[in-house]
Amino acid sequence: MNQNQRFLSLDVFRGLTVACMILVNTPGSWQYVYAPLGHAKWDGCTPTDLVFPFFLFAVGNAMSFAMKKFNTLSNAQVLGKIFKRTLLIFFIGLFLNMYPFGRYDAEGHFNFIDLSNLRILGVLQRIALCYCIAALLIHYLKPRGTAIVTCLLLLGYWAVMYFFGAPGDPYSMTGHAGQAIDLAILGESHMYHGEGVAFEPEGLLSTLPAVGNVVFGYLVGAYVQKNRHARGMLLKLVIAGSFAIAVALLWSSVFPINKKIWTSSYVLYTVGLATLLLSVMIYLIEMKGWQGKGTYFFEVFGKNPLFIYVLSGMLVDTYSYFRLGPNHEGLYSWMYNHIFQPVFGDYPGSLAFALFHVLLLWLVGWWMDRKKIYVRV
Rank of each mutant, 00 (worst) to 15 (best):
Lys236Gly: 02
Val238Ile: 15
Ala244Trp: 03
Met233Glu: 04
Ser252Met: 09
Lys226Arg: 13
Gly232Val: 06
His229Ile: 01
Ser242Trp: 04
Arg228Gln: 15
Gln225Ile: 07
Leu235Gly: 03
Ala246Trp: 06
Gly221Tyr: 00
Leu237Thr: 02
Lys236Tyr: 04
Gly241Cys: 06
Gln225Lys: 13
Gly241Asn: 00
Val254Gly: 02
Val254Ile: 15
His229Glu: 08
Ser242Lys: 05
Ile245Cys: 12
Ala240Ser: 14
Gly241Pro: 04
Val220Ile: 15
Ile257Phe: 03
Leu237Arg: 02
Val247Leu: 13
Ala248Pro: 10
Trp251Cys: 04
Gly221Ala: 01
Ala230Leu: 04
Ile257Cys: 06
Ile239Arg: 05
Lys236Ile: 01
Arg231Met: 03
Met233Gly: 01
Asn227Ser: 14
Tyr223Thr: 05
Tyr223Asp: 10
Gly232Phe: 03
Ile257Asp: 12
His229Pro: 00
Leu249Gly: 09
Leu250Asp: 08
Arg231Lys: 13
Arg228Pro: 00
Val220Gly: 01
Gly241Arg: 04
Val224Ser: 02
Val220Lys: 03
Ser252Ala: 14
Met233Asn: 12
Ala244Gln: 10
Val220Thr: 11
Val220Ser: 06
Leu249Ile: 12
Ser252Tyr: 08
Leu249Asp: 08
Ala222Met: 01
Ile257Ala: 10
Val247Ser: 08
Trp251Glu: 09
Gly241Thr: 02
Tyr218Asp: 08
Pro256Ala: 04
Gly221His: 02
Trp251Arg: 00
Lys236Phe: 05
Lys226Phe: 00
